[in-house]
């Protein structure tokens, strides 16, 4: 059985490293992107089974926008074949953004939130849960 592919979208290479190590050790294949644009290219190159997405990148809500585009309900969306890829979103709940985060199908099509810093065990458990393992 092929390793499942997880795409990490985060502008901080250190964060990507801290996510990558435990996930690779658990037996997942990892691809990385530093921003939503790179992320989109990576998705088109090889469709991941799961995306781990940072909320704040270029702007305070770049991650939100990326998730919204990807999971758009619009049938004409050019990304509609990626609509079903689950997204795990990393947030800084103590952050300066006044937005409240919670998974909400209408508002934000994201499957799960984790607050940074993420414990490796919690990360692995969440990933497994989203992949249905």
């Amino acid at each position: 059985m092929d390793k499942k592919l997880i795409l990490l979208v985060d502008d901080d290479p250190d964060v990507r490293l801290s996510l990558r190590l435990p996930l690779e050790a658990t037996g997942y294949a990892i691809s990385e992107a530093a921003n939503p644009k790179e992320g989109l290219t990576a998705i088109k190159n090889s469709k991941p089974d799961l995306i781990i997405l940072d909320v704040m990148m270029d702007s305070a809500t770049a991650g939100f926008q990326f998730a919204l585009d990807l999971h758009s309900e619009d049938p004409k969306s050019e990304l509609k074949e990626y609509k079903e890829i689950p997204i795990l979103m990393l947030t800084a709940i103590h952050g300066t953004t006044p937005l409240r985060f919670s998974p909400d199908q209408d508002y934000l099509p994201v499957q799960k939130f984790l607050e940074k810093p993420v414990e490796p065990e919690v990360l692995i458990a969440s990933v497994k849960e989203l992949l249905g393992e």
Partner: peptide, 9 residues
């Protein structure tokens, strides 16, 4: 936060 995550790995 990042430092902590890295150390944890």
């Amino acid at each position: 936060s990042v430092m902590r995550s890295l150390l944890r790995t």
